[in-house]
Write a protein that binds this DNA or RNA. Sequence first.
DNA 1: CTTACTGTACCGTCTGGACGGTATTATCAA
DNA 2: TTGATAATACCGTCCAGACGGTACAGTAAG
Lengths: 178, 178
Amino acid sequence: MKARRANSREKILAAAADVARETGPGSLSLDAVASRAGVSKGGLLYNFPTKAKLMQALVEDYLSAFQQALEAARTNGVSGESPLAAYIRLSAEHAEESKPSASWIFSAIAEDPDFLTPIKSFRRQLFQRLKGETPNLRALLVCYLAIEGLRSMNLFGSDILSAEERRLLISTLLEIAE
Amino acid sequence: MKARRANSREKILAAAADVARETGPGSLSLDAVASRAGVSKGGLLYNFPTKAKLMQALVEDYLSAFQQALEAARTNGVSGESPLAAYIRLSAEHAEESKPSASWIFSAIAEDPDFLTPIKSFRRQLFQRLKGETPNLRALLVCYLAIEGLRSMNLFGSDILSAEERRLLISTLLEIAE
DNA sequence: CTTACTGTACCGTCTGGACGGTATTATCAA
DNA sequence: TTGATAATACCGTCCAGACGGTACAGTAAG
C-alpha cells in the first residue's frame, strides 16, 4: 500500500530532476515529467496536485537529505575533526558527483522565486551554527565561501577545475579549517 | 543616424534586467520587457528579432563590460598589485552592489541552457590567465573559488554575510593573494 | 469500498512572434 | 529648392501553440 505510493513519488521527483538537468530548466513541463517518470499526467497530478507542490517537494527533499548527510558526517567523521571540516568534506563529495544533483533549482525559481526562501534560511542557519562552532572567523569565511563557489560551479556545470585542482583546493581548505 | 534612436536598445536591455530581477526569471516575457522599456512589442522585436537574440545581447553586454572593467582594474590598480588581487577587488566591488546585476542569467538559461557556454568559456579563459600569472596555485584556487562563492550568493540574493564579514573576507583573500 | 493510479478529452491563459501599418528622417533626381 | 522615394524605427493587433490544470470514466489491488 505504502510502497507503491512512495515508489511513484520518488520516481516522479527523480524524473523531474532528470528532465531539468537534461532538457533545461525552462523545459520542465508536467507532460515531460510524467512521461519521463513512466506515469500518466493524471497520476502525476494525483501525487502532486500542482506544479508548485512538485517543486516544493523537490526543495524539501533536497534540504532534508543534505541535513541528514551533514548530521551523519558530523558523527561518523574522523574524531577530532571540526564541524567546519566535516562540512567541507561533505560538500566536496557532493560537488564531485558528475550530475549536478540540484539543477532543478533553476526551474523552481523560474516557477516562483519564493522557492529560494527556504533554501536561503537553511543556509543562513547552517552558517550561524558553523560560526558558533568555529573559533577562527576568517578561516570560516574563506572556507565557507570557497565551498559555496564549488557548489555554484557544480550547479552551472562548469568544469574549469581539474580533478587534481579540486583535490588540492579541498586539502588546502581542510588545512585552513585546522 | 544610428546612435540617437539606438538608446532604445539600451533601455530595452536595462528593462529586461529589471524585470528579471523584480518579477523573477520565469516572468520575463516580451510584453513585460516592452512595457517596462516604454516601447511597444513591435518596437522591441524590431531591435531584437527574437527573444533569444535579446538574451544573447544581455550575455554579450555583460561579458564585455566585465572584461573592460577587469582591464581597467588591472592598469589603474595599486602599483605592485597582483592580477589576482585586482580580480578579487573588482569582483568584491561588483558583489557589493545591492542589485544582483546578473539575475537575468536565470531567464537566459531557462530560455536555452546553451547561453551558459559563452559565459563558461569566458570564465575558463580568465582562470587560465590567472593561473599563468599567479605563482601560488593554492592561493589562486582558494581565492578564485571564494570569489565565485561571493558571486553566487549575490546572484541568489543571499544576504547571510554582514557587510563587516564581507570586508573581513575580502581583506583576508587579498592577504592570501599577497 | 478505498487507494492509487491510467487515459483521454478538454479548457483558459499566456506567450512568442508574424504582420501590416505609420511617422520620421535620409537620399537623390529634376 | 523641391518633390518623390526609400529606409529607419517603431506601433498595435492577431494568432497558433504550449502549458497548467480539470473532469471524468475506467481499473486493478487490497
